[in-house]
């Protein structure tokens, strides 16, 4: 490689000589079977044509399958199980129709097309020094004609305008959404919010929840709010889980007597990046997030015992209302869900 580096290819004859030299070094062209044996060539020809015709046949079959097979027809195929008949028929016929054109063309080129390696020269990509100089000179002439460097006031004012002009495009984006305000700290839960089972909406009596039990729950007014707002934003923050354990198994809580007879309520939204979290192991009282495996100990204030989450799972203080159903004593004391810059300690 080193000997050939930067070979100056100045004249055509020099180029021709270089090509000849490389060609002489190339291994001799070995004829293929199809080059010397007409029978082999004819066989290859037939193979190629068969592939192209096979493709045409598959296209016809595709149209037949499209028309003939109902969209919900299923079929059992050994090794695949029960599959949609239309999908597999269309996929196989269409796939083969395309594939056979490809294999046919490649086979044709490999067996029958005149194949001889050719040599072309590369030229250094850089222009000659003269050309570079000429380009610089031309540019300077135009530059002088415009007076760009000679008139600093124009230059600077133009630059100022150019720097500022994209600003409207950014400002225009302002109404993409409202400002955050304090909404990330608020949920639907407030003193006296009744806890109902998700998705059935039934209120819960303490006795309903068996020892070792788990249930996903929401505030009673969530469906209404959801309907009103037309989105799932409230749900994304208000979802909770209720678990029940022996009161003596509770090591600590986020507030005094925030449980009700061993029933604890925690936010269902992971404090890492916000996945819903409900893989509850009733014996260890651990709650595992299926997204990144943050693990929280519900018997110990919902503290993090493993994984990337940095903050404990917020607990909801609960009690019962006069009718004997579980209700929230108060809203969450800290923001639920993932951390955000303004969150701080609160």
């Amino acid at each position: 490689m080193t000997t050939h580096e930067n070979l100056p290819a100045t004249t055509e004859s020099a180029e021709a000589a270089a090509i000849e030299k490389a060609a002489a070094a190339l291994p001799a062209h070995r004829p293929r079977r199809t080059d010397v044996d007409p029978k082999a060539a004819r066989r290859a020809e037939r193979q190629v044509a068969a592939m192209f015709l096979g493709s045409a046949l598959m296209t016809v079959l595709f149209v037949v399958a499209f028309v003939a097979i109902p969209v919900d027809e299923t079929v059992y195929i050994w090794g695949f199980g029960t599959v949609n008949a239309s999908n597999i028929a269309l996929g196989v016929t269409f796939g083969l129709a395309i594939l056979l054109i490809g294999t046919g063309a490649i086979h044709w080129s490999k067996k029958l097309m005149n194949e001889k390696e050719e040599i072309q020269l590369r030229h250094p990509l850089a222009s000659s020094d003269e050309e570079r100089e000429a380009a610089v000179e031309a540019f300077q002439t135009y530059q002088a004609d415009s007076g760009f460097t000679q008139r600093p006031i124009i230059r600077r004012s133009l630059l100022t305008a150019m720097v500022l002009f994209p600003i409207p495009m950014v400002v225009l984006l302002r109404d993409l959404g409202p400002l955050p305000g304090e909404v990330l700290r608020e949920t639907l839960w407030e003193p006296g919010s009744r806890i109902v089972i998700d998705p059935t909406g039934r209120p819960v009596r303490p006795s309903d929840l068996a020892l070792g039990g788990l249930i996903s729950a929401m505030p009673a007014d969530l469906p209404e709010v959801q309907e009103e707002e037309g989105n799932l934003n409230a749900r994304a923050k208000a979802a909770i889980i209720l678990v029940r354990m022996e009161p003596q198994e509770i090591v600590s809580q986020q507030g005094d007597n925030w449980d009700y007879g061993g029933i604890l309520a925690f936010s269902k939204i992971c404090t890492h990046v916000g996945c819903p979290i409900a893989l509850y192991e009733q014996r260890t009282h651990h709650l595992l997030c299926p997204c990144h495996q943050s693990t929280f100990d519900l018997a110990d204030s919902g503290n993090v015992v493993f994984g990337p989450a940095a903050r404990r799972l917020p607990q909801l203080p609960i009690t019962i209302d006069p009718e004997g159903f579980l209700v929230a004593v108060d809203g969450f004391a800290e923001p639920v869900g993932p951390s955000f810059w303004e969150r701080g300690d609160a």
């Binding site: 490689m1 070094a25 490809g102 294999t103 050719e118 040599i119």
Partner: peptide
């Protein structure tokens, strides 16, 4: 053999690569 930093050795676009690359798209 014969391949240097100053040349390209291979098959021409037409017809070989037309068939091979075009065929490969279908594959």
């Amino acid at each position: 053999l014969g391949r240097t930093n100053d040349n390209v050795v291979g098959y021409p676009l037409l017809p070989i690569y037309m068939a091979k690359a075009g065929g490969f798209f279908f594959v």
